[in-house]
């Protein structure tokens, strides 16, 4: 009797264990599913962010050089609109407007630098040869490496 009842108990225990293990397996499966989904979404997000970042990063750093030496680096994405000169050559004036920069009111004979207009795209360059001053938009990429 005892043996029989023990056997029943054992069978019941096994059944419960089976139910429990199925439940645990399903639960683990669900966790893994969400975990995998999370990783996939995260990776896709990183790739998407990188792609967007690369495509929408045209506002670069304006670099002003005098006689080949860098005088100023200006982050056009955050700089306020203003007009200014630099210490080594006050004959050359620049203007920043709407995240773009240009030569303005320059003391030189041909004024070609002023005619270059506003620069905002990476790798664009304007030069004032008489004043040996260059204005370049530097950046991490850009479609064009240089202009000719």
């Amino acid at each position: 009797m005892n043996k029989k009842s023990n056997c029943k108990v054992n069978q019941l225990d096994k059944g419960e264990e089976l139910v429990e293990s199925r439940f645990t397996f399903r639960f683990r499966l669900r966790i893994e599913f969400w975990l995998i989904l999370g990783v996939v979404v995260l990776c896709a997000g990183i790739l998407l962010w990188r792609g967007i970042k690369e495509k929408t990063a045209p506002i670069g750093i304006a670099v002003i050089s005098y006689d080949g030496e860098v005088q100023m680096r200006i982050d056009l994405s955050s700089e306020q609109d203003k007009t200014f000169t630099f210490e080594k050559n006050p004959k050359v004036q620049f203007e920043i407007q709407d995240h773009a920069i240009r030569f303005v009111h320059v003391e030189c004979p041909d004024k070609l630098c002023e005619k270059s207009g506003f620069l905002r795209v990476e790798n664009q360059t304007a030069v004032c040869l008489p004043n040996r001053t260059t204005l370049t938009i530097q950046g991490s990429g850009g479609e064009i490496d240089a202009f000719v």
Partner: peptide, 30 residues
């Protein structure tokens, strides 16, 4: 303004040069 280019970029692509628009008054279009 005369360019010579050597090799390929780190991503193995060729250097790309813009041929200026000769009638663009601002001189930065191509």
């Amino acid at each position: 303004g005369i360019i010579y280019n050597h090799g390929t970029k780190p991503d193995d692509s060729d250097f790309v040069f813009g041929i200026r628009d000769p009638e663009d008054p601002v001189g930065v279009a191509y």
